[in-house]
C-alpha cells in the first residue's frame, strides 16, 4: 500500500514540476514550489515507513514547519518591489 501511495505522490510531483517549468505566470511557479514542498513532506513520511525507518519522520516535521517561509519571502519581495516602484514613480512625477 505504501508503494502505491508513493508512486501516486511521485506522479503529483511530476505534475508540479511541469507547472513550475512551464509557468507561464510567476504565481504558477510560486504555487508549484509550494505544492512540491508539501509533496516532499508526504513522500518523506511515506518513504520513512516504506523503508522501515519511522524515526526519520523528524525530517518531514522540519519541512512542514519551515516550508512556507520561502513563500512568505516571495510575498514580501513582491510587496517591497511594488512599493519601491510606486515611490520611484512619485519621485519621477515630482521632478518632471
Amino acid at each position: 500500500m505504501f508503494a502505491t501511495v508513493s508512486i501516486a505522490i511521485l506522479v503529483t510531483m511530476t505534475l508540479a514540476i511541469i507547472r513550475a517549468l512551464r509557468g507561464p505566470s510567476l504565481y504558477d511557479r510560486v504555487l508549484a514550489v509550494n505544492m512540491f514542498g508539501t509533496k516532499t513532506v508526504l513522500l518523506v513520511s511515506v518513504a520513512a515507513y516504506l523503508l522501515g525507518r519511522p524515526d526519520f519522520l523528524d525530517l518531514a516535521l522540519a519541512y512542514a514547519l519551515i516550508n512556507f517561509i520561502g513563500v512568505l519571502a516571495v510575498l514580501e519581495f513582491f510587496q517591497t518591489r511594488a512599493l519601491r516602484r510606486r515611490l520611484d514613480a512619485e519621485d519621477g512625477s515630482e521632478s518632471s
Binding site: T40, L51, F56, L59, G70, V74
Partner: peptide, 21 residues
C-alpha cells in the same frame, strides 16, 4: 530562484532515500 527551491527539495528527498537522514 523558484526552481532552485524545487532542486533543493529533490536533493533532500534523494539524500533521504539513500538513508542519509
Amino acid at each position: 530562484v523558484m526552481l532552485l527551491g524545487i532542486f533543493s527539495l529533490l536533493m533532500a528527498a534523494n539524500f533521504f532515500v539513500l538513508d542519509a537522514a
